[in-house]
Amino acid sequence: MEALSNKRRVLEAKPMTFAERIYLPAILKGLSITLKHFFRKSVTVRYPEQKREFSENFRGMHSLKRDEEGRERCTACGLCALSCPAEAITMISAERKPGEEHLYREEKYAAVYEINMLRCIFCGLCEEACPKEAIYLDGDIVKPDYFRKELIYGKDKLVEAPLNQ
């Protein structure tokens, strides 16, 4: 049969030479390679003490933002929960009472806002869905825990710190 290309090569299995058959030269070569690595600097990043720089668009822990007057921006519309593919977000809304205008930006706010960090896949769709620019995934890595219930983060962990403190 004619060859399709000129790249065809006939390989012949050469019998091993004596040096190859007694293994020893190859073993010594291998040992010298590993010994070179013995004196090489390790590439390990010692994680908790030493951290790599994150990329600019790294998505970490969520934070619920406040506006320029320190009021919570979230209006509990539920779009973030709706957009969440992992169904990690739940919330209970409440109506703003007179006298609470300095706390909440809109008439409706989230009384309870929980994100289950075990379900969250950090895709950032909640951030994209939010019409009020209230949620951003701009935090650090979420720390592990021994108990599942500790990983359902409420408003105490998610809301940004107040402005004047």
Partner: peptide, 10 residues
């Protein structure tokens, strides 16, 4: 330790 050093680890 030897295994780690030979593999560029700690």
């Amino acid at each position: 330790k030897v295994a780690a050093f030979l593999q560029d680890r700690v």
